[in-house]
Design a protein around this nucleic acid. Structure first.
Lengths: 238, 238
DNA sequence: CAGTGGTCTAGACCACTGA
DNA sequence: CAGTGGTCTAGACCACTGA
């Protein structure tokens, strides 16, 4: 991977940002400095930085230089949403209610669980998100304790594990699977809907630099939540 | 818009592709020719073409040159899917059954209809997609006859309007709204499911160069269809 | 083998903007 | 006003691959 020089420069800096070694707002070496570091021309450095800029990982301003961008922006076609933030932004009161939290070995033969915990254990958290006192979604989450050992200390009685993860563990890749499901006996009552009632189901897996971090399955009460995606032929300039 | 030279080159060629003036497989002028056309250096041409290549609009091969890419690829995070093609690719038999087709004025006060048909009329098509004889989705579609007058000649008894549009009218922007819905009385029987049964609902609006082309609402039987989106920090190379 | 694109260089002029 | 990034030039060497 990264066979050309501008790709190597890009992935070096990208890795530093994604690993959290540099924080949002922090300055990145100027093109002049990078030219010296990599012993190359300015065009080559510029090409690498332009890609990072278009991807929204850095912000560039003349004279001020290049800084690490604030976490995730609307630039993503589909984002990993923070439900707590989204609901607050709508002016509603967000609440997370913990149903169950436990740490255990992965179930043998269960693909997702074994992929997440190759050697160690899993954190399993079940809870309900609500807006203005009305249940919005039931979620079941698995977190790899290999990847995020420090999460074992968290109780998640007030805050959803998703919000905690967004704050502490930067993700680099994500996959959404979106479908519809009839409400199951196990959680229909938690959402205050009849068994078999329509739900929007989002299954999301996230990775950090290729390492599988977490898998979550969220069931939203029909009509109370929508996913929106806009897209065009050429990525929009930032 | 397009204030810099490489942006102008890119958008010129992009417009030619999106308007259908050049078809998939057709050759695009080489960098040498474009240098002469725009009286600029090769780096400038190359920058424009690299963007088009990353966006998946063209395919470049040494010696063979640059050609317009086949319609939409997996490069899109979320695509406008051609159900007929997707189902055939899975090895199933696809069928489209027309329920209703009519041309009429937009309903006054109906936002979507008035936005689509500002001066003229609308084509309204209702139908059912099925795979191996099993109903998959019910769809209601509105098409602007201002934007696509030639579609008035099509009957859509065998082919879905979506497939026809993908072949004839290149879209440039799209918006998805994805949610869950209980099956309505009007179409539950068409999908062979009980009223209130869970459905995945996709509402999609598409534009061509800012002009609103079509709006479709599709209801998929729960469990028979999934939308998948993968995304990372830097767009993947093509 | 000749034309194409992929990459890179060493320079240039410019607009912007914070010290 | 000085440092930064945005853009562009005119050249170069190379790998690839179809005529």
């Amino acid at each position: 991977m990264a066979r050309t020089l501008h790709e190597r420069i890009r992935s070096d800096i990208e890795a530093r940002i994604l690993s959290g070694a540099t924080s949002p707002g922090e300055k990145i070496p100027s093109e002049q400095e990078l030219m010296k570091t990599y012993r190359c021309s300015r065009m080559t450095v510029n090409k690498a930085m332009t890609v990072l800029n278009n991807a929204g990982l850095v912000r560039r301003r003349k004279r001020a230089g290049t800084v690490v961008a604030e976490r995730r922006t609307e630039a993503m076609v589909l984002d990993v949403p923070d439900l707590a933030g989204e609901i607050s932004n709508r002016g509603q009161t967000y609440r997370y209610a913990l149903i169950e939290r436990l740490i255990r070995k992965p179930v043998r033969g269960h693909g997702d669980e074994e992929r997440l915990a190759r050697t160690g254990e899993l954190l399993v958290v079940r809870g309900v998100h609500s807006a203005d006192g009305q249940p919005l979604a039931y979620e079941e989450r698995l977190v790899s304790l290999d990847a995020v050992p420090e999460i074992a200390r968290e109780g998640f009685t007030q805050e959803a594990p998703g919000s905690w993860l967004l704050r502490h563990i930067p993700w680099t890749e994500a996959e959404h699977r979106i479908g519809a499901t009839p409400a199951a006996i196990a959680w229909a009552a938690l959402l205050d809907i009849p068994v078999g009632g329509a739900c929007l189901t989002v299954e999301r897996r996230t990775w950090r630099a290729g390492e599988h971090i977490t898998m979550v399955r969220q069931h939203f009460v029909a009509g109370r939540y929508e996913l929106i995606a806009r897209f065009g032929p050429t990525p929009k300039p930032a």
